[in-house]
Amino acid sequence: MNNAYRALWWREFVLYRRNFIGEGVLNLLLPLIFFLFLGMGFQQIVGKIDGVAYFEFLIPGMVLLTIALSAFETTSWFYATNRRNQQWQEVILMGDFPNKRSLFLSQILIGIVKSLFHGLVIFLITVFLSGASVSQINIQAFLAFVLFTAIQFSALGHIVGLYVKPGPLLGRLVIFLIFPLFIVSGIGWNISQYTPVFEKIIYWLPTYTLMHGTQSAFLKGVIQNFALIVTIVETGVIVGVAQLLTGTRDDV
């Protein structure tokens, strides 16, 4: 890892430590509250879903939601803040970076690692609280889907951060777009409970593929090959677009 990457990591840790309550705790608290309220509310009514306890059913969705929100926030705020700070990127790029794309890669990587860390914390807490068994998990498939979720939302945050100013709009995108996308994709129920038309619509959502793959890997220990291929293609497209928009040296 070269100097500039180390510097960006150092900056991230300094800010994370300083904003731990606002960033770290809130990032974990929101999905956790959602998990507890949804779980406690429906556990008695639903009992079991797809053959597993309702609390247990919620775990993969909560992990994915945490990762997506955390990855999106990390990169979108980095780039949006840079725009507000009048090409602060100029200064960073004068450091030990071979080119602009290496800055893109390092920031995406920071988003991925941070979100995976948050995802791991949520995973451990929710497994502990629900008493879920982890022996059935297809660990490779589960890790693949959570990793692709982190990559996708980190890259998406990059794209959004290039065009949206930091502030309320970024928050609204999280609340009114990413959050609902995960909810309708079956975070707390099986999408077969929707009407056939709505189910078909949901089927085409990128978040559904992620959710379906992760739930299958976690709850049934099954790898959904088609969902994995679709996810890989989607990830490639999003990262490709983000990288293209990063541009050349001329627009630093």
Partner: peptide, 26 residues
């Protein structure tokens, strides 16, 4: 290089800005 506009990392203190810059340059 020092450009015409003031470009500092507004989230970091002055000391942290300096440290960050030193780290960026190894």
């Amino acid at each position: 290089y020092m450009g015409q506009r003031v470009i500092l990392d507004e989230q970091l203190t002055i000391l942290e800005n300096f440290v960050f810059h030193c780290k960026l340059h190894g």
